[in-house]
Lab assay of single mutants.
Amino acid sequence: DDWEIHFNNITIRLHGVSEEQIEELKELIKNGAHEEELRKWAEEVNR
């Protein structure tokens, strides 16, 4: 699925990401992940 997530003036566009991966991302954000951590997560997902 395609997703677009907005938070802290950042837009993250995701393509072909599962519901499970979105839940992981929500947890990262909820736990106060920094932009660098989110980038690493996105790189892993996009492999």
Rank of each mutant, 00 (worst) to 15 (best):
D2F: 13
E43M: 01
E23Q: 13
G16A: 07
L25C: 02
N8R: 09
N31A: 14
E23Y: 08
R47C: 12
I5H: 05
N9T: 09
T11V: 11
I29D: 00
E20N: 11
R47T: 14
I12G: 03
D2N: 13
K26W: 14
K30T: 06
R39Y: 10
E24I: 11
K40S: 08
E19T: 11
A33D: 01
E27D: 10
R13D: 10
E35V: 09
L38C: 04
R13A: 06
K26I: 14
H34T: 15
N31D: 06
L28H: 01
E4W: 07
G32K: 03
V17F: 12
I12R: 05
E43T: 02
V17G: 02
H15D: 08
E36H: 06
E43Q: 02
E23G: 09
N46R: 11
V17C: 06
E23F: 10
I12S: 08
V17W: 13
I10M: 07
W3Q: 05
I12V: 06
I12F: 00
K26S: 07
R39W: 11
N46I: 15
I10P: 01
G32R: 03
N9F: 07
E19R: 13
L28E: 00
W41M: 09
E19M: 13
A42S: 03
V45D: 02
I22T: 04
S18Q: 05
F7T: 03
L14H: 02
W3C: 11
E23S: 10
A42Y: 14
A42F: 13
T11R: 04
I29R: 01
E27P: 00
E19W: 12
G32Y: 01
K30E: 08
I22A: 07
K26G: 05
E27V: 10
N31Y: 03
N31R: 12
I22L: 09
L28D: 00
I22G: 03
D2G: 13
L25I: 09
L14Y: 00
K40E: 09
D1N: 13
E20H: 12
T11G: 05
N31Q: 14
H15G: 07
I29G: 00
H34P: 12
D1Q: 15
H15C: 10
E44L: 07
S18A: 06
G16T: 10
A33E: 03
E43A: 02
E20F: 08
I29M: 07
H6N: 08
F7E: 01
E44G: 08
H34R: 14
H15R: 04
N9P: 02
I29S: 01
I10K: 05
K26A: 09
E36L: 05
L38T: 00
W41P: 02
E24D: 06
L38D: 00
D2Y: 15
A42V: 14
V17T: 03
I12A: 06
R13V: 06
Q21R: 11
D2E: 15
